[in-house]
Design a protein around this nucleic acid. Structure first.
Length: 425
RNA sequence: GGAGAGAUGGCUGAGUGGUCGAAAGCGCUCCCCUGCUAAGGGAGUAUGGGUUAAUAGCCCAUCGAGGGUUCGAAUCCCUCUCUCUCCGCCA
């Protein structure tokens, strides 16, 4: 969440910043609530001080064998006044907290203006779009012709927005995942982690998926309150929840492969063909925990690590800076990697790399303290896909297709494919 | 699933109703001594919030979490979570 001190002292700046997202923050209403909180808190604390002082005097009087009955009666009345204030204070504090938890992160100054993804700013392109001497097909046509991509079975089992893969294609996805994890752990300094796919609400509150985006999540209907992770960002980032880290602990880089589960409640009719948008997909996720002054360069490094994957796979892509209206709730700045899909004749998101600043750290209570002492302060957290395996698979199929419908296995994946060089019927 | 033990500050670990925000040790910081990478002495050292010019004082809260009893709770009661040990089961 946004630093409560900033909210208190610089509400106009906050309102102006969030306005760029199209979010309207009622600074006046906040200030009023905050003023009530302050008054109630001051009153409550004064009453508590009186109670504590009296309780001590009672203890002393009793020790000296004096009659304490009248003192006790007075204390009891005072106690009732106090508990009334405490109830009122708790209500206001709750209201204030839920307001704070619902505010998106402040945007970095460098985030370009704009309302939707159409306004995102293209920063650079890599690779050449392949020219085909035949009409390139999309991954659905290719996969089904190979009898390795099976939406009919998936819908029989689970309904729409699921895929069944068979044979070489299933293996190709596994190869992609292995390749990506090996690259990040061997070349980019990440520690591989294995994490739970079921998490508690507190973890989702920490990274910002809750309380506002419950409709995007799958919740398990039993008394234990599990949610399926929508991204590995949630369990990985929460590895440091509540921690007080030392300077020597930082930076931390974690990588994990997990499935991701998304309800896609708000996306009816979008990307219904193929496996661009599924309820379940595989992703390799990268997370950095860093000192605040290092988070800007960490974002560049993180984005670069994801780019290396696409470069190694020789997949053409472009890097875009998300505009103000498209940056996610918890992020203050985001770069997306968009891979070229010949079947769609357009670039599609395959990685999203975000600097969340201290927003998640504040929610999670993750702080660090420098070697020279000083007060603990929130760390900065970053996350990015490195990259989405399902979409990487689509990109490989479409970019490496041949006129006969077979798909060449990219060089860097061959060692993971047990000698298979081409997927064919 | 059954039985038992536990959860205290950066760490270890005392503390069973009042002067305990909390002994002691370790670690860390500063100072002193010491002609040397040893040892010793002294002081300091939790977090959040309020007040304030103040990272000075003063005040409030926090001893796994949430309720309760009490004038007063780390200490008593209830619920929950987690950890450990043993048994059972299982991948």
């Amino acid at each position: 969440m946004i630093d409560p001190k900033t909210l208190r002292n610089d509400a106009a700046m906050v309102a102006a910043n969030l306005e760029r997202r199209g979010y309207s923050f009622d600074a006046a209403a906040y200030a009023e609530l905050e003023a009530r909180r302050k008054q109630l808190q001051t009153d409550t604390e004064a009453l508590r001080q009186q109670r504590n002082d009296s309780a001590k005097s009672i203890g002393k009087a009793k020790a000296q064998g004096e009659d304490i009955a009248p003192l006790l009666a007075a204390q009891k009345t005072a106690g009732e006044a106090l508990s009334q204030r405490e109830v009122a204070l708790a209500e206001v504090a709750d209201a204030l907290e839920s307001l704070q938890m619902g505010l998106p992160n402040l945007l970095d100054d460098s985030v370009p203006p704009g309302r939707s993804e159409d306004d995102n700013l293209e920063l650079r392109r890599w690779g050449e779009q392949r020219s085909f001497d035949f009409e390139p097909r999309d991954h659905v046509a290719l996969g089904e012709a190979l009898a390795q991509l099976d939406f009919a079975s998936a819908s029989r089992i689970s309904g729409s927005r699921f895929a069944v893969m068979r044979g070489g294609l299933a293996r190709l996805q596994r190869a992609l995942i292995q390749f990506m994890l090996d690259m990040h752990t061997r070349e980019h300094g990440y520690q591989e982690v294995y994490v739970p796919y079921l998490v508690q609400a507190d973890a989702l509150l920490g990274t910002g998926q809750l309380p506002k985006f419950a409709e995007d999540l799958f919740k398990i209907e039993d008394e234990r309150g599990f949610y399926l992770i929508p991204t590995a960002e949630v369990p990985i980032t929460n590895l440091v929840r509540g921690d007080l880290l030392s300077e020597a602990d930082l930076p931390m880089r974690f990588a994990a492969h997990t499935p991701c589960f998304r309800s896609e409640a708000g996306s009816y009719g979008q990307d219904t063909r193929g496996m661009i948008r599924q309820h379940q997909f595989e992703k390799v996720e990268l997370v950095h925990i860093v000192k605040p002054e290092e988070s800007d360069e960490a974002l560049d490094a993180l984005t670069g690590h994801a780019e290396v994957i696409l470069q190694a796979l020789e997949l053409p892509y472009r890097v875009v800076a998300l505009c103000a209206g498209d940056v996610g709730f918890s992020a203050r700045k985001t770069f997306d990697l968009e891979v070229w899909l010949p079947g769609q004749q357009r670039y599609r998101e395959i990685s999203s790399c975000s600097n969340c600043g201290d927003f998640q750290a504040r929610r999670m209570g993750t702080r660090w303290r420098g070697a020279s002492g000083g007060k603990p302060e929130p760390v900065h957290t970053l996350n990015g896909s490195g990259v989405a395996a399902g979409r990487a698979l689509i990109a490989v199929i479409e970019n490496y297709q041949q006129s006969d419908g077979s798909v060449v296995v990219p060089d860097v994946l061959r060692s993971y494919m047990g000698g298979i060089e081409v997927l064919s019927v």
